[in-house]
């Protein structure tokens, strides 16, 4: 184990694979992703195994997650959002459980990698843009023309609006990546102080780490929630335009 607080983010190949000249090795990140999918699937499918009318503990958690995301989609997108509910639910659960599993000791947080978060954000961005264009055709591009503004200002404002629109996937991915990286790095930094400070002094960083762990659970949920909500809001924008 290295004492470098960033060492925890290192990607190590487990099974080197190469498909069509692309490095598709099975890495510790891939392990975390597979584990996330497995845990979410087991949680939802096993939890709903009883399909009882009066839910037990696991079943009500599965139902709660369902209605949480369903309410989110309905409140932010409306009834047209029903079609996109599975993808938003998958995104939310994928990120949420990725964040949570990353908090387990010795595990790997794949959401702390900008490649992953940016791919997800770009997928959302491209998908939402395509939905907007498919629904509204060329009218979609009036989205970048602010209403109620003098025409003289438009050459300045339209580029700003376009940059603002293009910055969505960047901010979406950076937010998630930065939050996860910062949290884990901070925990590691404080953890590194525990042993050197000895039996007497080690308690302070240990207490900080305990508090940070609780805080990180909150952040893990919040970031998954923010990602899903922003996806909903972007979807709503491209469906309803203005």
């Amino acid at each position: 184990m290295s004492n470098n607080p960033l060492h925890q983010f290192t990607i190590t190949e487990i099974v080197p694979v190469e498909i069509a000249g692309i490095n598709a090795s099975f890495t510790n990140s891939a392990v975390a992703m597979v584990a996330t999918v497995a845990v979410v699937s087991i949680f939802l499918i096993m939890g709903m195994g009883g399909r009882s009318l009066v839910p037990g503990r696991w079943q009500s958690m599965a139902e709660l997650s369902y209605s949480f995301v369903a309410d989110m989609v309905r409140d932010n997108v409306g009834n047209e959002g029903r079609k996109y509910f599975p993808i938003i639910f998958s995104l939310f659960m994928f990120i949420l459980f990725g964040n949570f599993l990353g908090l387990l000791p010795y595990s790997f947080t794949f959401t702390s990698h900008v490649a992953v978060t940016f791919t997800l954000a770009m997928a959302v961005f491209i998908g939402v843009t395509l939905i907007g264009i498919a629904r509204h055709g060329l009218h979609f591009f009036t989205f970048f023309v602010p209403g109620g503004v003098p025409a003289v200002m438009l050459p300045l404002l339209v580029p700003i609006e376009i940059i603002s629109y293009l910055s969505r996937p960047v901010s979406l991915s950076i937010r998630l990546f930065a939050n996860m990286t910062a949290g884990h790095t901070m925990m590691k930094v404080f953890a590194a102080f525990i042993v050197p400070l000895g039996f007497l002094g080690g308690w302070a960083p240990f207490a900080v780490d305990v508090a940070l762990t609780g805080f990180e659970f909150l952040v893990a949920f919040l970031q998954a929630y923010v990602f899903a909500v922003l996806t909903c809001i972007y979807l709503n924008d491209s469906i309803h335009l203005h």
């Binding site: 692309i22 699937s41 499918i45 794949f110 490649a115 992953v116 791919t119």
Partner: peptide, 28 residues
Amino acid sequence: TFAPQIVWLVITFLAMYFIMAKVALPRI
């Protein structure tokens, strides 16, 4: 490390999506 991450992200997320859309969500 980007390529393997993205490849596995696509694989796992598609798997996730199909499991959710075809199995888990209809049940709930």
